[in-house]
């Protein structure tokens, strides 16, 4: 019976759905996290019967034929890059991107990582680094004697030095954008990597066409909507149960067939 296997694909798909939803809920308070969604597609179809074949002795012709689908598969799990709410943190090194774009981070492997999580700090050498201590690119060094740091919406990092009323520019932050943001590969720790599907990074100053601006003293909260996730969880659970009901039905029908000859 095809129904048994078809329902099994349905159960597997809903299991994946629950896994994606649970990851969203677990990351509800992760800075810069983008929620994900599993999308499904129907599997291939088997042509059981003849389109255009004769259907009766009177010479009528089957107009549509019988195509039986064999289930469902996960089409993709994609990130929804909707803007998260900026949350005031008061930390002068916290940056939120208002609009599109990613911060660039130099990973220990030498690769460039991309992130929306702008909860930066300064390391012992005055470098602007991420939570994990990876330097932000292009590198920004804050002098030790700086009284205050001002980061403008377009990325200029200015410091106020003792005895000098005019702020000094110590560097400019840049943002990267991609043709296909959904094609970026997540590697955990809020970091994403460029792939062939995402296309090459286009780097420019914040506020340039197609890029967002920076907000100092804010972090971007995750864009997970708890109510929507719980609703999706309920739907996924019921769908899982219905698929298992199909398996039970197919099983009981086979049982009925077996009992004919007792």
């Amino acid at each position: 019976m095809r129904a048994l296997r078809t329902a099994a694909t349905g159960m597997a798909a809903q299991q994946l759905n629950v896994e994606v939803i649970s990851n969203n809920i677990a990351n509800m308070n992760t800075v810069g996290f983008k929620r994900q969604r599993a999308e499904f597609q129907d599997l291939l179809y088997q042509n059981v019967q003849r389109m255009g074949a004769q259907s009766s002795s009177a010479g009528t012709v089957v107009p549509t034929g019988i195509q039986i689908g064999v289930g469902v598969r996960a089409g993709s799990v994609y990130r929804i890059t909707e803007q998260g709410t900026p949350m005031h943190s008061g930390n002068r090194y916290d940056l939120a991107i208002d609009g599109r774009g990613y911060f660039q981070v130099l990973l220990p492997s030498g690769e460039t990582g991309y992130t929306r999580a702008g909860n930066f700090s300064v390391n012992g050498e005055g470098q602007l680094v991420t939570e994990d201590g990876y330097p932000v690119q292009p590198e920004i060094s804050i002098p030790q004697e700086a009284r205050d740091v001002i980061i403008s919406p377009t990325g200029q990092v200015q410091v106020l030095l003792d005895g000098d009323p005019t702020p000094q520019i110590v560097g400019e932050l840049q943002l990267a954008s991609f043709f296909n943001e959904a094609g970026l590969e997540a590697i955990g720790d809020n970091l994403l990597l460029e792939t062939a599907a995402s296309g090459p990074a286009v780097v420019a100053a914040p506020g340039e066409p197609g890029l967002g601006t920076l907000l100092q003293g804010y972090t971007e909260s995750s864009n997970v909507d708890a109510v929507a996730e719980i609703t999706a969880l309920i739907v996924a659970q019921r769908a899982y149960e219905m698929n298992s009901k199909v398996i039970t039905t197919a099983d009981e029908m086979l049982q009925a067939a077996n009992q004919v000859k007792s």
Binding site: M1, A3, A7, G10, V72, V235, V246
Partner: peptide
């Protein structure tokens, strides 16, 4: 039954 199973499996497609 095969067709109904496919409908249910694709209830979220």
């Amino acid at each position: 039954l095969d067709i109904v199973a496919n409908n249910i499996a694709n209830a979220d497609t």
